[in-house]
Amino acid sequence: MRLKDKVAIITGAGSGQGKASAKLFASEGASVVIAEWNEENGKQVEQELVNAGYTAVFMKTDISNEENVRSVIDQVVERFGRIDILFNNAGIGFSSRSRYKMAPLLETPLGDWNQILSINLNGVYLMSKYVLPIMIKQESGSIVNNSSLNGVLGVTGADAYTASKGGVVALTRVMAVDYGKHNIRVNCICPGAIDTPMIAEVLDNEKIAKSYATNPLRRVGKPEEIAHAALFLSSDESSYITGLIMPVDGGWSVA
């Protein structure tokens, strides 16, 4: 029960890494807010957790919309009275290629560039902007941002995505410096290739799937492995850790 009596908001908790984190956090005693854009997925996760005897609530959330974010945070405080954990997990990537072009810089339309950054980077900014005053008042809190190996390595082919995730890394560091005096810790996870709906289409290509499994551990990661990293950084077990940029990538970044 490492998160007993804690209130945790997890963005993008309707699938993949966010869903795995919602289940794990709930099992560790947290009241979980499923801040998810996809209403069907969000309600399904809520029902699964409630049926298992956990405290969970779905709130439809567009992390790129300031008024919606403000409203969601107000609802969370009204219902639970506090916010202890924010896992900024939501984002778009390869699974959104039908909506936004994932390409090198010269081939990326400005509109797609802006939309990708508005979700992947602005979403972290907006959620943090409205959660931080609550945590400052409490003089405690943990924020975990989900970036990507693209944020720390020169991975080609999706430059807007890479820029957005690099921004999350930089924002993590400055937030850790700014808000440590309020006993608020801010850390960042940088996943490698994780078997989630975001890259399911890519993993269907045997050649690409094999290339993803060339890390020292010779496999693609599981959503639960990101969830456990997020749990550690959210819990008191990491109480003296802030500003950490943690690759969870099977050793890909050091190979």
Rank of each mutant, 00 (worst) to 15 (best):
L105M: 13
M102K: 14
W113N: 13
A26V: 03
V32C: 03
I92Y: 10
A13R: 13
M59W: 12
Y54G: 01
Y161F: 15
I83S: 00
S27R: 15
E225C: 10
P109T: 02
G167R: 11
V152W: 06
D178M: 11
L106C: 11
P133H: 12
P191I: 01
F94W: 13
G151E: 00
D249F: 12
A26D: 02
S239D: 09
N68M: 01
I226N: 07
P191G: 06
F87T: 03
N205K: 11
K181T: 10
P133I: 01
G250Y: 14
S31G: 06
S147F: 00
F58E: 08
E28V: 00
L233I: 07
V7M: 01
F94Q: 13
Q138R: 13
K19G: 01
I189G: 07
K4C: 01
V155N: 13
D159I: 09
Q44P: 07
G180H: 15
I85Y: 00
K129G: 04
F80P: 04
E36P: 07
E139P: 07
N65F: 08
I143Q: 09
S128D: 04
E46D: 01
R79L: 04
I9H: 10
R99V: 08
M246N: 03
N88A: 08
G154F: 09
I9Y: 09
S96C: 11
E206M: 08
V254I: 15
L106P: 05
L171H: 12
L3S: 00
D195G: 09
R82F: 02
G250I: 03
I34T: 02
P109L: 01
N114K: 14
G123W: 07
L231D: 03
S147W: 07
G166N: 00
M246P: 05
H182S: 15
S211I: 12
L121G: 05
P223V: 06
M198I: 14
